[in-house]
């Protein structure tokens, strides 16, 4: 079997497809706005995540006076910065996802844009994961002070288990992300090389 032998399968698939016989009404319905709803649905989780980060940063800022040592204040500032960066990254990821492609462009050009966007998207995701690792440390240190002004050593076993669980979850999440993205990244890079 060679490529030309696959032609008959392809033609046959076309014959089956034309039997579907799209009617004027069906085509008419497909041109309506209601079918363009995917992107709108994607926005919601990204917006919620971003809002949570901004709210958390605001909460730390409002309770900053509870952080009574220079170290805690430094960690507080770092947490606010990390939360804001995560929030901005989420918006950037969303923007990349929503970026409209000019459909009139040749296929190769669209592929180039697609592969470039995909690489940038996954790099942003990677940065997000690293920041989450850092945030886990800073938040765990700050939480006892922010909720009840307690010293972290008073509930050391609770915080130790929280810290460990958080890291285990993040470890598996980052493992999953890197495994899932590795192939995609490789494919995107190869595609860009070929299109260069």
């Amino acid at each position: 079997m060679e490529l030309d032998d696959l032609k008959s399968t392809w033609q046959n698939e076309g014959n089956t497809a034309t039997q579907n016989n799209l009617t004027t009404l069906m085509i008419n319905n497909m041109t309506q706005e209601k079918y363009n709803s995917k992107i709108k649905k994607i926005r919601l989780p990204e917006i919620i995540g971003s809002s949570i980060c901004v709210i958390a940063a605001g909460f730390i800022a409002l309770n900053f006076n509870r952080l009574d040592t220079i170290v805690l204040q430094g960690i507080g500032v770092a947490s606010i910065i990390i939360l804001l960066i995560i929030s901005v990254l989420s918006v950037l990821i969303l923007q990349r996802l929503n970026l409209k492609i000019d459909l009139n462009k040749p296929y190769a050009e669209t592929l180039k844009i697609f592969a470039t966007q995909r690489l940038a998207f996954y790099k942003l995701q990677k940065v997000n994961i690293i920041l989450c690792y850092l945030l886990l440390v800073t938040i765990i240190v700050l939480l006892p002070k922010l909720f009840g002004n307690k010293d972290i050593t008073e509930y050391k076993y609770f915080w130790l288990s929280t810290f460990t669980t958080g890291y285990i979850v993040l470890f598996f999440l980052s493992k999953f992300v890197s495994k899932y993205y590795r192939k995609t990244l490789q494919q995107s890079e190869e595609l860009l090389k070929e299109l260069a």
């Binding site: 994607i42 492609i101 459909l103 462009k105 296929y107 669209t110 995909r118």
Partner: peptide
């Protein structure tokens, strides 16, 4: 051309 471009766009979504 548009059909192929949309297919790529769909992959992203």
């Amino acid at each position: 051309r548009v059909a192929l471009n949309v297919a790529i766009f769909q992959l992203k979504v």
